[in-house]
Design a protein around this nucleic acid. Structure first.
Lengths: 127, 127
DNA sequence: ATACATGCAAATAGTTTGCAAGAAG
DNA sequence: CTTCTTGCAAACTATTTGCATGTAT
C-alpha cells in the first residue's frame, strides 16, 4: 500500500462518473507531481484483479474505471452523449436460468437513450 | 464493391467463429497476396457502419468480427476458453421495459461457463 | 475524366514493460 | 537487508491515416 496507490484509489472512490486512466493520472499529478502514468496503469490493473474497482471497456475510446462494484449496466446515450449507470436487478440470475450457463461476471454496454432523453423523446412522439 | 471488399466479406460469411482483423488479413492474403492490412481494417469499419457485420470488443485482445447480425450475446468460457454465442430472446425488450430506456444496440459479454462446461460442473457437484 | 479504393508506410492511441533507483516492512 | 514499487523511457499492440498510385465507372 504505497502513497501512489492510496491516491489513485481515493480519486476513483471520490468520483461519481467513469474516469479513464489518463484522467486519473491528471488528477493524481495535481496532488503528487512526481507520479508516473505507468504507475497509474499498474495500480489500476491490480485493483481490477483484486476486484476493488471495475473496468469498463468501450468501442470508442480508452477503458474507464468505476468504483461501483454492484453489478450494473452501462448505457451510452445517443441523446446527451453521457455514459450512464443503469441497474437492473437479477440480470445475472436471469441469464443463468435462461442460458443454462454459469455467470461469473458480465459487462453489458447499451447504446440508446437514457431515461431522461427517452422520456423527452416520448413526449415529442405523443404531441 | 471492390474485389478486396468482396473477399473480406466472403471470409467472414464463411466462418462460423469470431475472427480478428489479423486473422481475416491472413486468410485474405492467401487468396490475394497483394492485399494490405489497412484495407482490411478500412473495409471492416465500413461493414460495421453499414451493419453488415458485428464488431465484438473484448478486454483481452483485438476486436473480433461476427457475421451473425441477430441480437445475441457472447460468453467467454472459463472452462474451455472459447468465445461462444448465446441467444436469449427478447433481452432488448426486457431492458427497455425495465430500464425505461430506448435500446438501439447492446453488447453483452459474459465471463463464466458455457452450457457444455456448466453441465459437466453440475455433475461433479452432484457426485 | 473523375471519383473512389488501394497498398504502403508512417503515425497514432492506449497500454505494458525492463530497469535502475527509491521506499517500505 | 530484502522485497516490492516507483519513475522513466522505450516497446508494444491494435488501429488509423496521408499519400501516390491504381481501378472502376
Amino acid at each position: 500500500m504505497t502513497r501512489q496507490r492510496q491516491l489513485i484509489y481515493k480519486i476513483i472512490m471520490n468520483t461519481e462518473g467513469h474516469l479513464s486512466a489518463d484522467e486519473i493520472f491528471s488528477y493524481a499529478k495535481a496532488e503528487m507531481p512526481s507520479i508516473a502514468l505507468g504507475t497509474v496503469y499498474r495500480n489500476l490493473r491490480l485493483m481490477v484483479e483484486d476486484q476493488e474497482i471495475r473496468q469498463i471497456i468501450t468501442d470508442y475510446g480508452p477503458d474507464r474505471y468505476d468504483r461501483n462494484m454492484i453489478p450494473h449496466e452501462h448505457l451510452h446515450c445517443d441523446g446527451c452523449g453521457k455514459l450512464v449507470d443503469i441497474t437492473f436487478g437479477g440480470l445475472k440470475e436471469l441469464l443463468e436460468n435462461k442460458g443454462e450457463i454459469a455467470v461469473n461476471d458480465y459487462q453489458l454496454n447499451i447504446r440508446g437513450l437514457c431515461p431522461v432523453c427517452n422520456a423527452k423523446q416520448k413526449k415529442i412522439r405523443v404531441q
